[in-house]
Computed example of a mutant assay.
Amino acid sequence: MILSASRRTDLPAFYSDWFLRRMEEGMVMVRDPHHPHLCRRISLAKGTVDGVVFWSKNPAPLLPALPLSLGIDCSLQFTLTPYGSPLEPGIPELNRRLDTFRLASDILGAGRVIWRYDPILLTKRWTVEEHLKVFQKLVQVLAGYTYQCVISFLDFYPGTAQRMKAVELLPLAPETCLWLAKTFQQIAAEYGIQCRACCESSGLLPSGFPSSRCVDPDLFPKAGLFHQRDRGQRPGCGCAPSVDLGAYGTCLHGCLYCYATHNFPTLKHWQRNHDPASPLLWGKPGPNDQIIPWEDRCSDQNQLRLEGW
């Protein structure tokens, strides 16, 4: 079993203590995002977890515990974009994040820290020319600390369009996406970094443009998932099956383009409902919750049960 920690929230930035405690105690519960009173009880006992994929914009709180505290293979999807406020109001300034990226690479190895330049969007401030200039600088700084850069263009989810009105988005024409992707690919290649696309199956990218597998089975050979695809993810996603430990609506970064948090005013509520000692990321199991044991080795049968998660 591979753990995803997490597509739904920045678990390394805000909930590292909770995650490490769950690993130490060997058990976690995850609420079904579509049925909040349905909780899956997942064993994290020794031998059941083949690896962990972390997703973060600021994994600094977790890094001191890696890799010795886990003792298992890890990879890190590190989103490093330069937007700052108002698009990304809650993340540290860029130089601090670059330092964190280099530290993560020193700890995990350059092959296990994947840089995400994601999402790509256009505004009066963030023009095509500005993206190219900043991307070039970031590639130069990160050369040798990563071998892969994952790109994707902005997708609109419920709530995204309304929040993004504050920054006056400019249209992203297909030919612009195509040209940017090719140019990013050429720039990155000069520094030994391969550029890949995440879930870009809409024809925006050139034929043959490599796709990413963010949950990459090549990094977790013990899991034996080389020919399996996570059918609970979007069309075009090439990730191997994983078990996500996060919860939507709990990330505190406040990024305007976020797909996982729809109601920012409720974030304080989620903070109050987080207990590092609870098996659940937010709240505790209650009398109305149905707890279902989740026996897993990511088999095809189990993957069918996970569809829609």
Results as ranks from 00 to 15, higher is better:
L3R: 01
S4C: 05
A5E: 01
P12Q: 02
D17W: 03
W18D: 01
M23H: 05
P36Q: 11
R41S: 15
G47W: 07
G47P: 03
V49F: 03
G51H: 02
V52L: 12
S56V: 08
K57M: 12
P61W: 05
P61Y: 05
L63S: 06
A65D: 13
L68F: 07
F78A: 09
P86F: 10
P89N: 12
P89E: 12
I91Y: 04
R96N: 08
R97Y: 11
T100Y: 00
F101H: 01
L103Q: 15
L103P: 00
D106W: 07
A110P: 12
G111I: 01
L122F: 15
H131C: 09
V134C: 06
F135E: 02
F135V: 08
F135M: 02
V139K: 00
P158T: 11
T160D: 10
Q162F: 10
R163V: 09
L169M: 11
A173L: 14
T183M: 04
Q185K: 10
A189R: 13
Y191V: 01
R196Y: 02
C199K: 08
G203R: 09
L205C: 08
P221R: 12
G224A: 05
Q228P: 01
R231N: 12
G232Y: 05
C239G: 05
C239F: 07
A240R: 01
A247Y: 03
C251H: 02
L252S: 08
T266H: 12
L267D: 03
W270Q: 14
L281W: 11
L281H: 11
N288F: 10
D289Q: 08
D296A: 11
D296P: 03
G308S: 09
